[in-house]
Simulated assay, not measured.
Amino acid sequence: MSHTGRTTDGDARSASDIAADLASAPFVHLVPRADGDSLAAAGLVARALVDDGTPFQVSVGRTVAERTGRAESVDDRDGRTLVVGDSDADAVHLDPDDEPASVAAWRLANDLGGAPDAVLALAGAVAAGATPGAGATERLVDAAETTGRVVRRPGVALPTDDPTDVAHSTWLHGPFSAGVDETSALTDVADDIGSDADDSARRRFASLAAVETVTDDDATDRAGIAVERGLRPYATPDSATASVAGLADVLSCAAASEPGTGIALALGHDVADAAVATWRDTAARAHEALSEATTGRYDGLFVARVDDDAPAPVVARLLRDFRSPEPVALALADDAAAAAAVDDATVDGGVAGAMARTVTHTGGAYDGTATTGFATYECETKEFIHAFREAL
C-alpha cells in the first residue's frame, strides 16, 4: 500500500493532509534525493508553492544521512520540511512505495491548488522506470494529450531535435554512443537526416538505433527490452526539451553530476541549454566508462569498476540494461558505488536495504529505492563488493 507522506514513525498521510501542512507554513524546505524522479517531484511541489505565494528552498541530499542533516537544520517554528525520499528526520516524507514520487507530487500539487505540469510529472515517472500510460501514469498521459502537450511520434527519444545527440542518450548504448569509439552506420545517418526529418526518416533512424544496440557484441538479451524506452517518444512541442523521455534523461544525468542544474530545470527556469550541456557531458562520461570498465560476474551480480570521475548511478543503469547478464548491476568507482536491479523482487528489502546493510560493514553512507542504490564507502573495492554480495 503506497503512502504519500509519513513522519518518522511511519504513519501514512494523505496528499490533502500534506498540502494543508505546506499551505499553512510560512516557509517550506524541500529536500529531494538525487535522482530524476525526485528532482521532478520537488519541482512540481515548488511550482505549486509559488502559485500559492509560499516561499521555499530546495536542497538535494544524495544520501539518507545527508537528507536527514539538511531536514534537521530547519527549525519547524520557521517553516516546514518535505523530504522526497527517505530520511531519519522528523519531517514529512514524500516516499511512495508503489508509484514514482513525481506522480504523488503531481497529486499533491493539485491539492495545493496549483496546475501541475503533466509533462514534468511524466518525465519524473520515466526517470523512475515507469512506462508512460501504464499504471499510475495513465492520468498524466491523458492530461498531457488532452491539452496537446505531448504527441507520440516515431524516432529516438532525445531532449533535442538534433539526431546526432543519439550519441548521448542513456536510454541506448551501442557503438554510436559517445566515447565508445566504434564504427557505426547510425552516426552517418544522424548527420544526414538533420533536425527536420519526416516520420519515415525518423522511423528508419530509430530502427537502425535499435539494431545497433541489440546486435552489439557485448549486448545482453535484456537490451532488446530496454531499448524500447528510447524509441517512439512522446514529443513535447511546447516544452524546453523535445520529448518526455529526453527530459527524463536530462534530469537523471543532472541528478548524478549537477543536481542544482536539474532542480533549476524542474523549477521551470530558463536553463535548458545548460541542462542539456550537463546531460551531454555526463552521458558521454558514463558511456565511455562502461565501454572501458573492468567487469566481474558473480552469482546474481555483475560488477563494473570504473574511473573515479564516472557518474556511477548512470553507469549502473546502463550496465543493468545493456551489459549485465545478472539481475543486479554494480558500478564501482574509488569511493562511490551505485547499483541497479531488474526489479525489487530481486533483492531482499530492495536495493536500498542491500546498500544499508553493506555500509554497516564498510562505513560510509547510502541511499536507495527498491531497484536502485548509491553509497559512499571507506574500504577497498574488493571489500565493498564482498559486503554487497553478502547483503544481497
Rank of each mutant, 00 (worst) to 15 (best):
V58D: 04
Y298L: 15
Y298I: 15
S207V: 12
A206Q: 01
R202E: 06
V271E: 13
L140F: 01
A242F: 02
L108S: 05
A340D: 08
D192N: 07
G349A: 08
H168I: 00
G124M: 00
A19R: 06
G148S: 12
A338E: 13
A266C: 04
E258P: 05
R107K: 10
D270E: 08
V58Y: 01
S177H: 06
H168K: 04
F56W: 04
D111I: 01
L112Q: 05
P159G: 08
S14G: 14
T7P: 00
S195A: 15
A248I: 04
D75Y: 01
D188F: 09
V126G: 10
F322P: 04
A134C: 03
D348E: 14
I385H: 02
G61V: 06
A134D: 14
D75Q: 10
T170Q: 12
D35Q: 03
S16D: 05
F205S: 00
E228S: 12
H168V: 03
P116Q: 15
T63I: 11
T261N: 12
A89G: 06
T282I: 01
T362Y: 04
V315Q: 00
I18C: 06
T358I: 14
A128V: 09
L186Q: 06
A209K: 02
V315H: 00
C379E: 13
A293I: 07
G194E: 02
T215A: 12
V211Y: 03
L82W: 02
A20T: 13
